[in-house]
């Protein structure tokens, strides 16, 4: 466990050294400051009035719900975009000649290396997302006196969605050691395949089940389902099934273990 922690810590440092996480942090800070200025300035009334949310809301104020969604969606999509871009090189750089030799010569198992990489990268993304979500939570809380904790939980669902994609990145990295390929596949999964398959899967429920689509739906990380849960949490709605969260967690464990199995078989 100590070795996993050391590896995770180094991965965290590696992530910090990459400017992209700093960009993520600065953008979050910029959004927070901007929002604070709007929220606590006189012009805020008109700004707030422009947001309304239709549908089943548990939040007391639909305007607040709209504001939250307006803030969280770009954070989610933009954060994922930057995070994927940042971690995609972790495995190929780990496997570079001269680096991996040194690491494998230490009393650390290959499984510990992979788990360390996974946890370090995920921790970095969580820290960034939690910072943004928590600051927004405080601002919204102070302004509208809305302190529903469901908004905080969004940091966990966004991180889970990232972790699912990251597990794919790790597997692709171990298999092909190519950052560009992993980047393209990850973006395609997050921005195209997962939403598409999620929609098709929902449509199928009303019609005939297609085995291929169902299979693909379970092979590709269910980030679109996590997005739906995230939306509901933002709006204070706890009325959702936890199946996507459980399936995604299992998905991560399976993919990481497959990565470790392949990593164990390889020569460097």
């Amino acid at each position: 466990m100590k070795n996993v922690f050391i590896m995770a810590l180094l991965t965290f440092r590696e992530a910090l050294s990459k400017k992209i996480f700093l960009v993520f942090f600065l953008i979050s800070t910029f959004v927070i400051i901007l929002f604070a200025l709007f929220t606590f300035s006189g012009s805020a009334v008109n700004f707030h009035a422009s947001f309304t949310v239709r549908g089943n809301l548990n939040t007391d104020n639909p305007i607040v719900g709209g504001i939250k969604l307006f803030l969280i969606y770009p954070l989610y999509a933009g954060g994922m975009f930057l995070s994927i871009f940042s971690v995609v090189g972790f495995i190929p750089s780990l496997l570079e000649k001269g680096n991996i030799d040194l690491l494998l010569s230490k009393p650390i198992s290959r499984g510990q290396i992979i788990w360390g990489k996974f946890l370090g990268g995920t921790a970095m993304v969580f820290a960034n997302v939690f910072y943004a979500v928590f600051m927004l939570y405080l601002l919204i809380g102070f302004k509208f006196d809305e302190w529903g904790l469901s908004f905080i939980l969004v940091a966990f669902t966004i991180t889970l969605a990232f972790a699912a994609i990251y597990s794919v990145i790790i597997l692709l990295g171990i298999l092909w050691e190519n950052s560009t390929f992993s980047l393209i596949v990850s973006y395609l999964i997050f921005f195209v395949f997962s939403p598409l398959l999620g929609s098709l899967q929902n449509m199928q429920e009303a019609n005939l089940k297609n085995v291929v689509l169902t299979l693909l739906y379970y092979i590709v990380p269910q980030t679109s389902d996590i997005s739906s849960i995230t939306t509901k949490l933002v709006l204070g709605n706890y009325n959702f099934g936890i199946a996507p969260l459980v399936v995604s967690s299992l998905y991560i464990i399976i993919l990481i273990n497959i990565s470790i199995y392949i990593f164990n078989k390889k020569d460097y």
Partner: peptide, 29 residues
Amino acid sequence: RSKIGFLPESHKFPTYLTAEEVLYYFAEL
């Protein structure tokens, strides 16, 4: 391997670490 030291040919250390940090990191591992 806790009783082994290794200097590989053309080794690479994490470039964002200082010399001292490199030693700390590998010693901890």
